[in-house]
Design a protein around this nucleic acid. Structure first.
Lengths: 358, 358
DNA sequence: AGCTTCGCAGGAATCGATTTCTCGGTCAAG
DNA sequence: CTTGACCGAGAAATCGATTCCTGCGAAGCT
């Protein structure tokens, strides 16, 4: 039985023909390689590789290889494999902040699916910054990641190089303009509409809105949904008087609410378009000793531990986990070779399955 | 000027001597390699490597290489580098759940430091499960990660193989028994003591305690701190009557509080040893319509957005971010080759710098 | 001037797996 | 019985960077 060309690592064969382990060497405790498995099984490394990857190998050989691999507790070195294959079993997930539970839920959704399909996940926090986002996209490229799930921090993430290399990218929660990329989104307009309706249904007379930055798509869509219902109730009032743009953070919500309170004929209820800003809005209300009856609040998105509910806030949970799961499934499809134009999946907001299970 | 031995990828040189780009080939859009840089600079790949890694190279050559690298926008392929060097610039952070803000803050702390030192971070969620934790540890091993920051899900994480390979591991928040591993911990006993004292200071007469699982070290230590103060106030009472073990989750806190309420001569205040259980405890109290004055609560750890504070809970914030940062610094020291016995860093709870800055 | 030393760049081996190519052997058809 | 197709395993190239080793040339020393 011929030995592999290269002596297995940790063995010396230059002068001694007899191969002997070198336990004092720098490789003590290292993982076995395919060469060691091949040598133990009395086959070539190529055959071991074939067995591992399920390529046709005659039964007897396959059995010997499997036995040897088990005995040595062999795991293929993912780095070597990645170098050769030019691809890996790793996905990147880039979120704007790990500290908002909405995104951690989304991350769970992605992870569940990735995990189930044998992929690892690298979680990256772009901190809502274009530069950090770009850096992580470069990392994904350099690391030959199999795909990227991206919650874009800006309207124009730097995807060009990634797409050139045909690395699948799926955007979640926010879409990307001008680039053909799959996306999984919420029906933001509908959620906002529904939140506004609920406040009117509860008897409030004039419902204002606090939304996110002007240039952010989700913020606009949610404001649009509110505006639609508002205008129906107050056809002769300019809705913009009752709309505030903030930054999707606690402090922004705080200030926006303070500003709304000073409005002439101020609103008696407010739709706040994300969870963090609602916390800020609540803070202002509590500071001003304004009760939930005097000023109704609706919040798009949830905060765990029912904080908001307890304060009398009308909460419209968003399916963050489903969003992540759907994005991951779409990404895996593309990685699996699915062709066709970029898809745009809009999740129903009422709960229910994200996309049909397979 | 001799050409490199291997023709650069994407070029053919078998029949034509003239090297010409092959834009239709499968490598369109691929990243440049060190061979291409070498060829453009008219030097050997070895020299390019030296320049990139800051090894001594004469000025003129170095300049040519740098120019070529810049022109081609060259980034060394981390996979190839990792294979050769048998190590990477990636850290793993394994936390029990991404959905507890305590751990996301901790993650931020780790990330800040890692990022600053040029390391990437892979965030893994063990879901408090031994098997998932083991899997991630195996991944860290196989991926040649530079080090691991671990919040152990169990008392005996399977670190053996990682340590054999001399991969540095730092445990955070919870320590590991019987294994020589650096750890960064909180003074759990002191935090609990302090929380208990505060409730007595506020005038409560009998302070009970809800802590985590019996076999969890942090749960024990925190219970010990409470027990110490309790026994000082009630020398002739068996503290165990006023102690409940739950599971560190919301439901556990809910049930434990319900159980405490039925105690003969029930407590008029309770120290709850983590944030999630406090939410559960609050739920029970609100369901029973028991006011904050009737039943005081203290919580070890924070929940963002001041939920707890608003409910009259005495909150003792824990320095999660510092914990993560300190762990990361310790890990980077070890990666940098720091020798010596395993360290055990206990952070002060009052805030202030985690460990002296350098 | 001759010899050693030293610095520095190139050649080639190397990391560990995958994959193409090659070739010996088997079987079927002529 | 010979020849061609085919199957399957081994040999070797390959992925892209690092690093050991060799050797050239310049500088220093006697």
């Amino acid at each position: 039985m011929p030995l592999p060309v290269r002596p297995p690592r940790g063995y010396r064969s230059e002068i001694d023909i007899k191969l002997s382990p070198d336990p004092a060497g720098p490789y003590a405790g290292a993982m076995p390689t395919i060469y060691e498995v091949a040598s133990l099984a009395g086959v070539s490394p190529a055959t071991v590789s074939r067995v591992i990857n399920g390529l046709p190998v005659s039964g007897a050989y396959a059995e010997r290889v499997r036995a040897a691999a088990t005995k040595l507790n062999f795991t293929p070195n993912p780095t070597a494999r990645r170098l050769r294959r030019r691809s890996s079993q790793v996905l990147a997930l880039i979120i704007p902040t790990i500290e908002n539970p909405f995104f951690t839920s989304l991350a769970r959704g992605v992870e569940d699916v990735a995990q189930g399909a044998g992929y690892s996940l690298v979680l990256c926090d772009s901190d809502e910054r274009h530069d950090k986002e770009s850096t992580y996209l470069d990392v994904a490229l350099a690391e030959h990641m199999a795909g990227v799930v991206l919650v874009p921090a800006t309207n124009h993430p730097r995807l060009a190089r990634l797409l050139e290399r045909r690395t699948p990218v799926v955007s979640v929660d926010r879409s990307i303009r001008g680039t053909e990329v799959d996306s999984v989104l919420l029906d933001n307009r509908e959620v906002a509409r529904s939140a506004t309706e609920r406040l009117y249904a509860r008897g409030f007379r004039r419902v204002g809105c606090i939304t996110g930055p002007r240039e952010t798509e989700t913020a606009q869509q949610r404001a649009d949904g509110w505006r639609e219902v508002f205008s129906r109730h107050h056809p002769r009032t300019d809705p913009e008087r009752y709309l505030r743009h903030a930054d999707f953070r606690v402090a922004g919500g705080r200030d926006a609410m303070a500003s709304l309170l000073t409005t002439r004929r101020r609103p008696d209820a407010v739709v706040v378009t994300n969870n963090s800003m609602t916390v800020g809005a609540l803070e202002t209300l509590q500071r001003e000793r304004i009760s939930p009856a005097e000023m109704g609040l609706a919040c798009l998105g949830d905060l765990p531990y029912s904080v908001l509910q307890r304060a009398g806030v009308e909460v419209l949970p968003l399916p963050a986990r489903s969003l992540g799961a759907a994005a991951a499934r779409l990404l895996l499809d593309r990685i699996g070779g699915a062709e066709g134009p970029a898809q745009r999946i809009v999740l129903p907001i009422g709960g229910g399955p994200a996309i049909p299970d397979r």
